[in-house]
Design a protein around this nucleic acid. Structure first.
Lengths: 200, 200
DNA sequence: CACCCTACCTAACGTTCGTTAGGTAGGCAA
DNA sequence: TTGCCTACCTAACGAACGTTAGGTAGGGTG
């Protein structure tokens, strides 16, 4: 009942705790809108002490953006192995569910990533862009294969439909409420809209 | 050939000029990430002089967010009268085109709105939320009528598909390049994806 | 016991921020 | 010519920012 030993603690401390709270703060107020003193107070220390764990505020953001991608990649991995031989639409739904899981169920890193990346300092973006590209390439490749197999409309631009789908999923961070909505149902709804459309 | 008289000047000045550049700056760097000194230098004046035109930075943002909605509302009006009696999917496409027009063809206000609203100060949001709600209600009502007429799948949640569509359209600010892509074609593509889906 | 390393703290540095008070050049009106 | 109004400017204010240098309590190790 009480926490046992090593893996996940009820209230973590140190570096991971800082990253968690920083990601949540950046998500809510934006990168420039959140101050280190605000962050320090949230985690219960003084601003200067943060520099024992991180070289700079930019460095902190870089780490958060990196973790955001790691979470997405891991989710993609799991969806890939879990949906190895299901029909195309179910495969897409598995990956949609995985991406939503990254956004809502694995800490604030992915949500903070998709919301703060655009206005991040150039030096930070430079580091993260290749990682982003790699993740997006996996999606594009998956959709490209489905199109080659005849499962996706051959007239659509795979890159465009991916960006549209990403926009829809990522924007849900702004309005989807995990307390009120069910993520499985939401993934099913967004996949149905993506695959079949809404026309009667 | 040279500009004539009143309506639109090649290079505007004064208050409108400030708003234009401020919206562009807020869009690029976020509200907190853009400074008034940066803005002042862009429009060719000193930071303090901005206060002749605006009471505060928050006030400036409020005006920009308000204009962003005005542009959307106007675009919606035009789409509504232009697509009064066309088939449902064409009606939706007209409104998608109108929203994209607001985002890309009528100054940076709407784009700045959708990108900075989320992290705007609470006092600013309070003022703008009712205006936002009014615009979103028009969309919901339109889709609701289409569903009542049997043109939209009766099993979908109109509010969810609207939010998903909004997410897709608004996120395109991040990646769609007006110099390379055609907005008519993009509106057609996004509408087709919305209406018919991408499944073969 | 002596030592050291971890994880903080205090206190300040210089910079930048939004903002304000008071001044002024130029145009238009009486 | 005098006076006012518009649209700026200069100069500074206090606050907040990211960041750094130096100090220290406490636990683990020899």
């Amino acid at each position: 009942m009480a926490q046992s030993a090593s893996n996940t603690v009820l209230v973590e401390s140190g570096r991971d705790r800082i990253l968690d709270e920083a990601a949540a703060l950046f998500l809510r107020h934006g990168y420039e809108g959140a101050s280190l003193r605000q962050l320090a107070e949230t985690v219960g220390m003084k601003a200067g002490s943060l520099y024992y764990h991180f070289a700079s505020k930019d460095d902190l953001l870089t780490e958060i953006l990196r973790r955001g991608i790691d979470v997405m990649q891991t989710a993609f991995d799991e969806a890939e192995t879990a949906s190895a031989d299901v029909r195309p639409v179910a495969r897409v739904e598995a990956h949609v569910r995985a991406h939503l899981s990254a956004l809502f169920e694995n800490g604030p890193y992915t949500a903070a990533h998709v919301m703060t990346f655009r206005t991040a300092p150039e030096t930070v973006r430079e580091v993260v862009v290749p990682l982003r590209d790699a993740y997006e390439a996996r999606w594009t490749e998956m959709l490209r294969l489905l199109q080659a197999d005849g499962a996706i409309d051959p007239t659509v631009d795979v890159n465009v439909i991916r960006l549209v789908l990403f926009g829809a999923m990522n924007a849900s961070v702004e309005w989807f409420d995990t307390d009120r909505g069910n993520l499985d149902r939401f993934a099913a709804a967004i996949t149905a809209q993506f695959w079949n459309g809404v026309g009667a």
